[in-house]
Nucleic acid binder design. Sequence first.
DNA 1: AGAACCGCTTGATTTCAGTCAATTCGATTA
DNA 2: TAATCGAATTGACTGAAATCAAGCGGTTCT
Lengths: 233, 233
Amino acid sequence: MCIAGGRIHDLQGAGSKTFGATAPTLSAQHVSTHDHLFFEGDARDRIYIVESGWVKLYRTLIDGQRQIVGFANSGSILGIESDGHYSNSCEAITDVIIRPIPAIRINGICKNDPALADQILRQIARQLGAAQSQLATIGAQSAEQKLATFLLSIADLCEVNHDREFDLPMRRGDMAEFLGLRLETVSRKMTEFQRRGWIKLTSLYHCRFLQRHVLEQLAQGGEADTGVALRAC
Amino acid sequence: MCIAGGRIHDLQGAGSKTFGATAPTLSAQHVSTHDHLFFEGDARDRIYIVESGWVKLYRTLIDGQRQIVGFANSGSILGIESDGHYSNSCEAITDVIIRPIPAIRINGICKNDPALADQILRQIARQLGAAQSQLATIGAQSAEQKLATFLLSIADLCEVNHDREFDLPMRRGDMAEFLGLRLETVSRKMTEFQRRGWIKLTSLYHCRFLQRHVLEQLAQGGEADTGVALRAC
DNA sequence: AGAACCGCTTGATTTCAGTCAATTCGATTA
DNA sequence: TAATCGAATTGACTGAAATCAAGCGGTTCT
């Protein structure tokens, strides 16, 4: 099966030709929160361009452990890392609108559709860079540093508003599975960040930076000084 | 600077036209062990195709922590994840022969050189898949599982010979920086794997599988049973 | 030969994050 | 308003890997 619950709906007439004259012809589709676009191992019959909303991409190990390998929102292309079969599962974490592209178009795409191919090449390069950054985060940072890095990068994707406020569209457990932590650890650190006055959670899924520079220092591998001036030495 | 020690040598006449009629014109170059092809942040003036030998790709955090984001050998394309500037440093861990491709060719490559573009697209997709697998390894596995996964995948890249023997071209510290562990932990686990009769180190950089299935079970998230039969229950 | 160096191994101890368990919070429904 | 359910928080305890430190073995340099 490819779509859990079969709740993907065609949106005839919704935003078309986003990707130029050679763009795909399939119409945009709607996916509800918690529905899957595809599962790891499914035959890859199409790739998807996200038009709005958020999805998570993850892998499941045999012992049930899961690893989220990325979150994706508007502009992301899904399914390009695989060949024949999807190598990740993909679940909507908000309501999502996607535009499918038949996989058949991918073979020899450079000859047949150079505009789309360039688009895909840029996207996949960006995703590879992001995956490598995430490797550095997961492999070389402490829980505290991981969370700081995560908040900054998610805020970046969400475009922080004038109040330094941004969405946190995923659950604590998703954050944990992305960062290689447990949700209890994420929860504790979020609480600690608040207690120290670095962030303010206006709701579970809404966050505001109070001391962004402290998080940036943490993320870059420095010590958090909480405003205490460093003495020259 | 781009090449530490300036020890990259042109190899005029060495293997040419590996990548079809539209292949790059620059000649192959030799890089000695421990020399750098490029550093994180350098202007990306070219990408490279590895023709022989091994390199490591890594990032350095401000506090000096390093994360190896990948090892690459024959057939790999280096520098494609970046745009304008290299996002990783690249160091030869053995003597290496590479073929450079001027970055200028990359823009609009689909129109100008579709054969090379298809090649790059396949390579980058493979690298993204590998990076995501590595995320799952680093984020969701124990030290023991990480090492089992690593040995299996490196053996795969090296092509195990008839004696189930394969090269381990990197140092313990490199393995550690790749797996998000400390070199002491890698050393301990390697010793433990040997003591349990799963592997035999014929030298520091040469390994033989004795009980490959145990490692495979470990890597997939199961318990290691060391040959003791499981009772049906 | 001796000294110095480098990478690896091994041991003792500490610590950060994981585990297990209880409780709270918030949204939805009866 | 009470009941229910899922998600998040909080607490007590444990354990796996990090840290700190010493020693080993091979290679290179004087």
